[in-house]
C-alpha cells in the first residue's frame, strides 16, 4: 500500500469535481422542497440531463451547449412531475419515483448509440493570478466553468431565499400553502417554477457527470447521485450553504475512497465502493436523531384550493 501517491492538493481539486453533480442537483432540490414539494425524481432528471448533455456535446463538439440543453430538457422533463402533482393532484412520492424510472428508461433508450464514445470536456479556466499561487492555485482556481457556476448558484439561491420578495413568497408557500393562498399568492405557479428550476439544475448536475467527471455515457451512470442529493438536502436542513458543505463532504468521501482503491489499500474494493452510501445513511441517522429542524411545514402535502 502506498499512501504517498495520494496528493492532498489534487485530492481537494478532485473532491470539488466529484461533489459538483450532487451539489447542482441538491441546491435545486432544496429550492423545490422549500416550496413544499418533495420531488423524488432527482435521479431521473439527472440521468436525462446526463444523456442529453452528452448527445448535444458530442454532436456539436461544444460542451457548454450540452450543459445548456441538459438544463432545458431536464427542466421540461420535470414539468411532467409538476403537472401530475400540482394539477392532477397525484401522490408526490409515487410520481417522483415514476419520474426516476421513466428517466432511467428514456436515457437508456436515447443513449444507446452513444455507448462507449468519449465526450469533449470543458476546459479548465485558469483564473489569472490566483491560479499561479502554489498548491492553492491548482486546488481552487484551476477548475472548469461549471464548478464556479455551481458555487455561484448556491450564492444566488441563498440570496434569493433570504433577501428577495419572491424568495419569501416561495418560503411562505412551502411553510403554509393555505395561508399563502389566502394572501393571494399563486401556490401552484410558484411550485411549478420551483420544480422546473430543480429540474434544470439536476440536468446540469447529470450533464456534469457525463461531460466532466467521467466523461462518457454508460447506462445508469448517475448510480444513485440523485438520491444522495436528496439526502444532502435533509442533511443541510434546507440551507444553501450547508448544501454546499454536505456535497463537498460527500465528494471528499467518494474521492478518498477511489484514491484508496487506486493506492491498493488492503480493504476490499467492494467495501470501499459501498462506503459513500453507508456514510450517507450514518449522516442521515445523526441528523434525524436531532430532529429534522428546518423542514418546510407543507413539505409533500398536496394542495387543493377549495374556493
Amino acid at each position: 500500500m502506498d499512501f504517498s501517491s495520494i496528493n492532498p492538493a489534487l485530492l481537494i481539486a478532485s473532491l470539488m469535481v466529484s461533489a459538483t453533480p450532487i451539489l447542482l442537483a441538491a441546491i435545486g432540490e432544496a429550492v423545490v422542497e422549500k416550496s413544499g414539494v418533495l420531488n423524488l425524481g432527482v435521479e431521473g432528471m439527472m440521468i436525462v440531463g446526463a444523456v442529453v448533455g452528452f448527445i448535444v456535446a458530442v454532436n456539436t463538439d461544444t460542451p457548454l451547449l450540452g450543459f445548456v440543453c441538459a438544463a432545458i430538457i431536464s427542466g421540461i422533463f420535470s414539468i411532467i412531475f409538476g403537472i401530475l402533482t400540482q394539477y392532477l393532484k397525484s401522490n408526490q412520492v409515487a410520481t417522483g419515483l415514476g419520474l426516476t424510472l421513466v428517466g432511467l428508461g428514456l436515457s437508456a433508450l436515447l443513449g444507446r448509440p452513444y455507448e462507449g464514445m468519449k465526450s469533449p470536456t470543458l476546459k479548465a479556466l485558469e483564473i489569472p493570478f490566483f491560479s499561479d499561487i502554489p498548491v492553492l492555485g491548482k486546488m481552487l482556481f484551476s477548475h472548469d466553468l461549471m464548478i464556479y457556476f455551481s458555487i455561484f448558484l448556491v450564492t444566488l439561491v441563498w440570496w434569493f431565499l433570504k433577501y428577495t420578495h419572491a424568495g419569501m413568497v416561495l418560503r411562505a408557500v412551502g411553510e403554509n400553502h393555505d395561508a399563502a393562498h389566502a394572501l393571494g399568492y399563486k401556490v401552484v405557479l410558484v411550485r411549478m417554477l420551483a420544480i422546473m428550476f430543480g429540474g434544470a439544475t439536476s440536468g446540469l448536475g447529470g450533464a456534469y457527470i457525463s461531460l466532466a467527471r467521467v466523461p462518457q455515457w454508460t447506462e445508469g451512470m448517475t448510480a444513485g447521485a440523485g438520491w444522495i442529493a436528496l439526502a444532502i438536502v435533509v442533511f443541510a436542513s434546507w440551507r444553501p450553504w450547508r448544501v454546499l458543505f454536505g456535497a463537498y463532504i460527500f465528494g471528499g468521501v467518494t474521492v478518498l475512497q477511489l484514491n484508496l482503491q487506486a493506492a491498493g489499500a488492503s480493504i476490499p474494493v467492494e467495501y470501499l465502493s459501498m462506503s459513500p452510501y453507508l456514510i450517507t445513511i450514518v449522516v442521515l441517522v445523526i441528523i434525524s436523531s436531532r430532529g429534522n429542524q428546518g423542514a418546510p411545514a407543507s413539505l409533500g402535502r398536496p394542495f387543493h384550493a377549495s374556493s
Binding site: I80, L84, L88, S90, N91, A94, T95, L97, G98, L101, V102, L104, G105, L106, S107, A108, L109, R112, E219
Partner: peptide, 20 residues
Amino acid sequence: PGASIQLFQGMLLFFLLATD
C-alpha cells in the same frame, strides 16, 4: 432497445397516477 420497455412501464405508472 430493451430500455423502451422500461420506459413503457414507467409511462404506465405516470398515466395511472394521472387517471387517479
